[in-house]
């Protein structure tokens, strides 16, 4: 017995997939940017920079996992209708990036 295939397009224009990929790209960018600070450990600079870089990389990994879980979950939401926005995740990524930029500026100010 074969399951019936869906006969209604639930996401015209593949908005859902494109958004999930945008989250993935952003998470990867967070990991790469974090690595830029993390390599400060080789220059025996204050631990703050290594920790901040490591935290940014961890945050990127976290976003990658959350984006994956959310991608699956939203398939149901899109079929039944419901709230798709997630201000908490947006806040997390925004705040992490601002904090990271502050530490990066501190790093640049060190002689």
């Amino acid at each position: 017995m074969t399951a019936e295939r869906p006969h209604r397009v639930f996401d015209e224009g593949l908005q859902h997939e494109r958004t999930a990929l945008a989250w993935d790209r952003t998470a990867l960018a967070m990991i790469v940017a974090g690595a830029f600070l993390f390599r400060a450990w080789r220059a025996s600079l204050p631990l703050l920079f290594v920790v901040a870089g490591g935290l940014m990389m961890a945050a990127g990994g976290f976003v990658l996992v959350v984006a994956y879980v959310r991608y699956g979950r939203l398939h149901g939401v899109l079929r039944t209708g419901g709230e798709v926005t997630n201000p908490r995740l947006v806040r997390l990524v925004g705040t992490a990036t601002v904090a990271f930029s502050v530490v990066a500026i501190l790093r640049a100010l060190i002689p």
């Binding site: 494109r18 952003t26 960018a29 940017a33 830029f36 926005t85 947006v90 990036t97």
Partner: peptide
């Protein structure tokens, strides 16, 4: 949401460029 993420990636590229 994608526009927000594009801005974040722009910020990260600028920061990574500055650190570089």
């Amino acid at each position: 949401e994608r526009t927000f993420l594009a801005w974040i990636r722009t910020a990260l590229a600028l920061i990574a460029g500055g650190l570089g």
